[in-house]
Simulated scan of single mutants.
Amino acid sequence: MNTLGERLRHLRGEQSQVEFGVAIGVNINTLRNYERDVRSPSADTLSEICIKTNTSPLWLLLGEGPMRLEGGSETLPAKTPNESRFDATTPSNDACGGTQEKIRELRRENTELRRECSELRTENQRLSRELSDANKDLINTSKELLQTTRENADLRVELTEIKSRAAPDTIPAEEPTRKSA
Rank of each mutant, 00 (worst) to 15 (best):
I24P: 01
D133S: 11
R85C: 09
T53R: 00
G13T: 02
E35M: 09
T111Y: 10
E119S: 11
R7P: 05
N135H: 06
E119T: 01
E109R: 14
R104C: 15
I103S: 08
M67R: 13
E109D: 13
E19R: 12
T89V: 00
W59C: 03
I162M: 08
R121H: 14
A43V: 10
C96A: 10
N29K: 13
L69T: 05
P176N: 04
N29A: 12
M1V: 10
F86A: 02
R107T: 14
L131S: 04
R36L: 12
S42Q: 02
N54A: 12
L58P: 00
R107P: 11
E6K: 09
D87A: 06
N124F: 12
R39I: 04
E6Q: 14
R12L: 07
P41T: 02
R156G: 07
R156N: 05
E119D: 09
R114N: 14
E151Q: 04
L138A: 06
N152L: 11
K79R: 14
T160S: 13
R104P: 11
R107M: 15
E161D: 12
L60A: 04
R104N: 15
E105M: 15
E130M: 04
R68E: 10
T99N: 12
T30A: 14
R32D: 09
E161P: 00
E123L: 13
S40R: 07
E48M: 09
N93I: 08
S92T: 15
E74K: 11
F86Y: 12
L60W: 00
T170K: 05
A167V: 00
D137I: 00
G98C: 12
R178H: 05
P81C: 01
N54C: 08
T141F: 02
S92E: 09
G13Q: 03
T148N: 04
E35V: 08
L131T: 00
E123N: 13
I28S: 14
L145N: 10
S40Q: 07
T89N: 06
I28C: 11
N82R: 08
P66F: 03
G13W: 01
L61Y: 11
E6I: 01
G71K: 01
I171N: 02
R150H: 04
P172G: 06
D44C: 00
E48Y: 00
